[in-house]
Amino acid sequence: MIFSMTGFAAASQETPYGSFNLEIRSVNNRFLDIQFRLPDDFRRLEAAMRELLTAQLSRGKIECRLLFSPAHTLDIDQQLNHSLLERLMQLEQTIKTRYSSAASLTVAEILKWPGMLESNTAPSEEWDEIGMMLLQTALKDLKAARMREGDKLRSILLDRILQMRQLLQIASPRIPALIASFEDKLRARLEEILGNNENERIHQEITLFASKIDVDEELSRLQAHLDEVERILNQGGAVGKRLDFMMQELHREANTIGSKSVDLEISRISMELKVLVEQMREQVQNIE
Protein backbone atom coordinates (compact mmCIF):
# COMPACT_ATOMS: atom_id res chain seq x y z
CA MET A 1 0.00 0.00 0.00
CA ILE A 2 1.00 3.61 -0.51
CA PHE A 3 -0.11 6.40 1.79
CA SER A 4 -1.41 9.88 1.13
CA MET A 5 -0.11 12.73 3.28
CA THR A 6 -3.63 14.13 3.60
CA GLY A 7 -5.90 12.97 6.39
CA PHE A 8 -7.85 13.79 9.53
CA ALA A 9 -8.71 11.84 12.65
CA ALA A 10 -10.16 12.59 16.07
CA ALA A 11 -10.68 10.80 19.36
CA SER A 12 -12.42 11.85 22.57
CA GLN A 13 -13.14 10.59 26.05
CA GLU A 14 -15.41 11.76 28.86
CA THR A 15 -14.03 11.57 32.43
CA PRO A 16 -15.11 12.85 35.85
CA TYR A 17 -12.58 15.64 35.35
CA GLY A 18 -14.05 16.74 32.05
CA SER A 19 -13.90 15.91 28.35
CA PHE A 20 -10.70 15.21 26.41
CA ASN A 21 -10.70 15.75 22.64
CA LEU A 22 -7.72 15.14 20.37
CA GLU A 23 -7.51 15.94 16.65
CA ILE A 24 -4.78 15.21 14.09
CA ARG A 25 -4.68 16.95 10.73
CA SER A 26 -2.22 16.03 8.01
CA VAL A 27 -1.37 17.75 4.72
CA ASN A 28 1.40 17.28 2.19
CA ASN A 29 4.91 18.54 2.93
CA ARG A 30 8.42 17.75 1.69
CA PHE A 31 9.47 16.56 5.14
CA LEU A 32 7.87 15.54 8.43
CA ASP A 33 6.77 18.70 10.23
CA ILE A 34 4.89 18.15 13.51
CA GLN A 35 3.16 20.99 15.35
CA PHE A 36 1.30 20.74 18.65
CA ARG A 37 -1.46 22.79 20.21
CA LEU A 38 -1.71 21.57 23.78
CA PRO A 39 -3.15 23.05 26.99
CA ASP A 40 -0.51 24.16 29.49
CA ASP A 41 -1.28 21.16 31.72
CA PHE A 42 -0.32 18.80 28.87
CA ARG A 43 2.84 20.46 27.56
CA ARG A 44 4.96 17.79 29.22
CA LEU A 45 3.43 15.20 26.86
CA GLU A 46 4.80 16.86 23.71
CA ALA A 47 8.07 14.91 23.65
CA ALA A 48 6.34 11.52 24.01
CA MET A 49 3.70 12.46 21.44
CA ARG A 50 6.33 13.62 18.97
CA GLU A 51 8.25 10.37 19.40
CA LEU A 52 5.12 8.32 18.69
CA LEU A 53 4.21 10.32 15.58
CA THR A 54 7.77 10.28 14.25
CA ALA A 55 7.95 6.50 14.61
CA GLN A 56 4.85 5.92 12.46
CA LEU A 57 4.79 8.79 9.95
CA SER A 58 7.47 9.61 7.37
CA ARG A 59 6.30 12.81 5.66
CA GLY A 60 3.63 15.47 5.94
CA LYS A 61 2.75 18.55 7.94
CA ILE A 62 1.04 17.23 11.05
CA GLU A 63 -1.00 19.34 13.46
CA CYS A 64 -1.92 17.65 16.73
CA ARG A 65 -4.46 19.48 18.88
CA LEU A 66 -5.63 18.44 22.33
CA LEU A 67 -8.59 20.15 24.01
CA PHE A 68 -9.67 19.72 27.63
CA SER A 69 -13.01 21.01 28.90
CA PRO A 70 -13.30 20.81 32.72
CA ALA A 71 -16.44 19.30 34.19
CA HIS A 72 -19.11 21.84 35.11
CA THR A 73 -19.37 20.37 38.60
CA LEU A 74 -15.93 21.69 39.59
CA ASP A 75 -15.97 24.31 42.33
CA ILE A 76 -15.09 27.68 40.75
CA ASP A 77 -13.80 29.14 44.05
CA GLN A 78 -11.36 26.29 44.48
CA GLN A 79 -10.19 26.70 40.88
CA LEU A 80 -9.44 30.40 41.21
CA ASN A 81 -5.73 31.31 41.26
CA HIS A 82 -5.85 33.80 44.13
CA SER A 83 -2.20 34.86 43.90
CA LEU A 84 -2.56 35.62 40.20
CA LEU A 85 -5.82 37.47 40.87
CA GLU A 86 -4.14 39.63 43.52
CA ARG A 87 -1.26 40.44 41.19
CA LEU A 88 -3.68 41.32 38.39
CA MET A 89 -5.61 43.68 40.67
CA GLN A 90 -2.37 45.40 41.67
CA LEU A 91 -1.42 45.89 38.04
CA GLU A 92 -4.86 47.25 37.25
CA GLN A 93 -4.61 49.74 40.12
CA THR A 94 -1.18 50.88 38.94
CA ILE A 95 -2.50 51.47 35.42
CA LYS A 96 -5.53 53.41 36.71
CA THR A 97 -3.27 55.60 38.85
CA ARG A 98 -1.51 56.80 35.69
CA TYR A 99 -4.45 56.56 33.29
CA SER A 100 -7.66 57.37 35.15
CA SER A 101 -9.78 56.82 32.06
CA ALA A 102 -8.69 53.17 31.69
CA ALA A 103 -11.61 50.73 31.81
CA SER A 104 -11.81 48.18 34.62
CA LEU A 105 -11.49 44.48 33.96
CA THR A 106 -14.75 42.60 33.84
CA VAL A 107 -15.34 39.32 35.66
CA ALA A 108 -15.43 37.49 32.34
CA GLU A 109 -12.08 38.97 31.32
CA ILE A 110 -10.54 38.02 34.64
CA LEU A 111 -11.78 34.42 34.41
CA LYS A 112 -10.38 34.13 30.85
CA TRP A 113 -6.96 35.38 31.92
CA PRO A 114 -4.31 32.69 31.24
CA GLY A 115 -3.71 30.63 34.38
CA MET A 116 -6.52 32.24 36.37
CA LEU A 117 -8.57 29.06 36.66
CA GLU A 118 -6.79 26.01 38.02
CA SER A 119 -7.96 22.41 37.83
CA ASN A 120 -9.74 21.17 40.91
CA THR A 121 -7.63 18.04 40.60
CA ALA A 122 -3.99 18.51 39.66
CA PRO A 123 -2.85 16.86 36.43
CA SER A 124 -1.77 13.34 37.12
CA GLU A 125 -0.37 10.27 35.39
CA GLU A 126 -3.97 9.30 34.66
CA TRP A 127 -4.37 12.43 32.54
CA ASP A 128 -1.16 11.62 30.70
CA GLU A 129 -2.39 8.11 29.97
CA ILE A 130 -5.65 9.48 28.59
CA GLY A 131 -3.81 11.91 26.34
CA MET A 132 -1.46 9.25 24.95
CA MET A 133 -4.28 6.75 24.52
CA LEU A 134 -6.29 9.29 22.51
CA LEU A 135 -3.23 9.99 20.35
CA GLN A 136 -2.74 6.30 19.63
CA THR A 137 -6.40 5.90 18.69
CA ALA A 138 -6.43 8.99 16.47
CA LEU A 139 -3.10 8.05 14.87
CA LYS A 140 -4.43 4.63 13.94
CA ASP A 141 -7.48 6.24 12.30
CA LEU A 142 -5.27 8.82 10.57
CA LYS A 143 -3.06 6.12 9.05
CA ALA A 144 -6.15 4.25 7.88
CA ALA A 145 -7.49 7.43 6.25
CA ARG A 146 -4.14 8.13 4.60
CA MET A 147 -4.03 4.54 3.36
CA ARG A 148 -7.50 4.80 1.81
CA GLU A 149 -6.55 8.06 0.13
CA GLY A 150 -3.26 6.51 -0.99
CA ASP A 151 -5.11 3.63 -2.62
CA LYS A 152 -7.17 6.15 -4.62
CA LEU A 153 -4.00 7.97 -5.69
CA ARG A 154 -2.44 4.68 -6.77
CA SER A 155 -5.46 3.89 -8.95
CA ILE A 156 -5.27 7.34 -10.55
CA LEU A 157 -1.56 6.95 -11.30
CA LEU A 158 -2.01 3.47 -12.76
CA ASP A 159 -4.77 4.80 -15.00
CA ARG A 160 -2.47 7.58 -16.26
CA ILE A 161 0.27 5.01 -16.90
CA LEU A 162 -2.17 2.97 -18.98
CA GLN A 163 -3.10 6.04 -21.02
CA MET A 164 0.58 6.83 -21.62
CA ARG A 165 1.28 3.26 -22.76
CA GLN A 166 -1.59 3.52 -25.23
CA LEU A 167 -0.07 6.69 -26.67
CA LEU A 168 3.31 4.98 -26.99
CA GLN A 169 1.66 2.13 -28.88
CA ILE A 170 0.35 4.67 -31.36
CA ALA A 171 3.67 6.49 -31.70
CA SER A 172 6.14 3.59 -31.99
CA PRO A 173 4.91 2.09 -35.31
CA ARG A 174 4.98 5.52 -36.97
CA ILE A 175 8.68 6.15 -36.43
CA PRO A 176 10.27 3.86 -39.09
CA ALA A 177 7.86 4.96 -41.83
CA LEU A 178 8.24 8.58 -40.78
CA ILE A 179 12.03 8.43 -40.98
CA ALA A 180 11.94 6.61 -44.34
CA SER A 181 9.56 9.18 -45.79
CA PHE A 182 11.70 12.10 -44.71
CA GLU A 183 14.87 10.35 -45.93
CA ASP A 184 13.34 10.01 -49.39
CA LYS A 185 12.30 13.65 -49.45
CA LEU A 186 15.68 14.80 -48.20
CA ARG A 187 17.58 12.60 -50.67
CA ALA A 188 15.58 13.99 -53.56
CA ARG A 189 16.19 17.56 -52.40
CA LEU A 190 19.91 17.04 -51.83
CA GLU A 191 20.37 15.31 -55.18
CA GLU A 192 18.65 18.23 -56.80
CA ILE A 193 20.99 20.65 -55.07
CA LEU A 194 24.26 18.70 -55.01
CA GLY A 195 23.83 16.45 -58.02
CA ASN A 196 24.56 12.75 -58.18
CA ASN A 197 28.30 13.12 -57.81
CA GLU A 198 28.24 13.56 -54.02
CA ASN A 199 26.52 10.41 -52.87
CA GLU A 200 28.68 10.18 -49.75
CA ARG A 201 27.70 13.71 -48.71
CA ILE A 202 24.06 12.89 -49.30
CA HIS A 203 24.36 9.75 -47.20
CA GLN A 204 25.99 11.70 -44.34
CA GLU A 205 23.30 14.38 -44.37
CA ILE A 206 20.53 11.81 -44.40
CA THR A 207 22.10 9.88 -41.53
CA LEU A 208 22.50 13.05 -39.47
CA PHE A 209 18.93 14.14 -40.14
CA ALA A 210 17.53 10.72 -39.32
CA SER A 211 19.28 10.72 -35.94
CA LYS A 212 17.78 14.12 -35.13
CA ILE A 213 14.19 13.07 -35.75
CA ASP A 214 14.41 9.47 -34.48
CA VAL A 215 12.59 9.32 -31.11
CA ASP A 216 12.64 5.54 -30.81
CA GLU A 217 15.23 5.73 -28.00
CA GLU A 218 13.13 8.25 -26.09
CA LEU A 219 10.04 6.07 -26.50
CA SER A 220 11.96 3.07 -25.16
CA ARG A 221 13.23 5.02 -22.13
CA LEU A 222 9.75 6.35 -21.50
CA GLN A 223 8.42 2.79 -21.52
CA ALA A 224 11.14 1.75 -19.06
CA HIS A 225 10.33 4.68 -16.77
CA LEU A 226 6.65 3.72 -16.77
CA ASP A 227 7.65 0.18 -15.81
CA GLU A 228 9.67 1.57 -12.91
CA VAL A 229 6.83 3.82 -11.70
CA GLU A 230 4.48 0.85 -11.76
CA ARG A 231 7.01 -1.26 -9.88
CA ILE A 232 7.36 1.45 -7.20
CA LEU A 233 3.58 1.69 -6.82
CA ASN A 234 3.30 -2.07 -6.41
CA GLN A 235 6.15 -2.12 -3.92
CA GLY A 236 4.39 0.42 -1.68
CA GLY A 237 5.67 2.14 1.44
CA ALA A 238 7.05 5.68 1.65
CA VAL A 239 7.64 6.15 -2.08
CA GLY A 240 6.64 9.79 -2.62
CA LYS A 241 10.15 11.18 -3.16
CA ARG A 242 11.11 8.40 -5.57
CA LEU A 243 7.93 8.92 -7.57
CA ASP A 244 8.59 12.65 -7.69
CA PHE A 245 12.01 11.94 -9.22
CA MET A 246 10.44 9.59 -11.77
CA MET A 247 7.99 12.33 -12.80
CA GLN A 248 10.97 14.49 -13.74
CA GLU A 249 12.35 11.69 -15.89
CA LEU A 250 9.01 11.10 -17.60
CA HIS A 251 8.62 14.79 -18.36
CA ARG A 252 12.15 14.99 -19.77
CA GLU A 253 11.55 12.17 -22.25
CA ALA A 254 8.11 13.44 -23.28
CA ASN A 255 9.54 16.92 -23.84
CA THR A 256 12.42 15.56 -25.93
CA ILE A 257 9.99 13.63 -28.12
CA GLY A 258 8.14 16.87 -28.82
CA SER A 259 11.30 18.85 -29.57
CA LYS A 260 12.56 16.21 -32.08
CA SER A 261 9.22 15.64 -33.76
CA VAL A 262 8.69 16.57 -37.40
CA ASP A 263 5.27 14.93 -37.50
CA LEU A 264 2.02 16.52 -36.36
CA GLU A 265 0.74 13.29 -34.80
CA ILE A 266 3.95 12.71 -32.83
CA SER A 267 3.82 16.33 -31.63
CA ARG A 268 0.24 15.79 -30.48
CA ILE A 269 1.23 12.61 -28.66
CA SER A 270 4.11 14.45 -26.97
CA MET A 271 1.71 17.11 -25.71
CA GLU A 272 -0.72 14.48 -24.41
CA LEU A 273 2.14 12.71 -22.64
CA LYS A 274 3.24 15.92 -20.92
CA VAL A 275 -0.33 16.64 -19.80
CA LEU A 276 -0.60 13.15 -18.28
CA VAL A 277 2.79 13.49 -16.58
CA GLU A 278 1.71 16.80 -15.07
CA GLN A 279 -1.50 15.21 -13.79
CA MET A 280 0.57 12.43 -12.23
CA ARG A 281 2.97 14.93 -10.67
CA GLU A 282 0.07 16.72 -8.94
CA GLN A 283 -1.07 13.44 -7.38
CA VAL A 284 2.46 12.37 -6.43
CA GLN A 285 2.84 15.57 -4.37
CA ASN A 286 0.31 14.10 -1.93
CA ILE A 287 2.04 10.72 -1.51
CA GLU A 288 4.06 10.02 1.62
Rank of each mutant, 00 (worst) to 15 (best):
I257Y: 05
R268W: 08
I232Q: 05
D244K: 09
M271T: 15
I266Q: 01
K260F: 00
A238M: 06
N255K: 11
G258I: 03
M280H: 02
E217T: 07
E218D: 14
S220Q: 15
V229F: 14
G237T: 14
S220I: 15
L219N: 05
R268D: 15
T256S: 06
E253V: 08
R281W: 08
I257S: 00
V262K: 14
G236T: 13
L233Q: 09
L250D: 00
V215T: 13
E282S: 14
E218S: 10
G258R: 01
I266S: 01
M246L: 14
G236W: 12
V284E: 13
I232H: 06
E230C: 07
L276G: 05
E278I: 04
N234V: 10
L276T: 07
R221N: 02
R252Y: 02
D244M: 06
S220W: 10
M271K: 07
K274T: 07
K274V: 06
E228I: 15
E265S: 11
R242T: 12
Q285S: 09
D216A: 12
V239F: 04
S261I: 07
T256L: 06
A238Q: 11
D263R: 03
V284R: 07
L222C: 06
G237A: 15
N255M: 10
G258L: 01
V262N: 06
L219G: 02
V284W: 03
D227R: 08
L276K: 12
L243K: 10
E272D: 13
I232E: 00
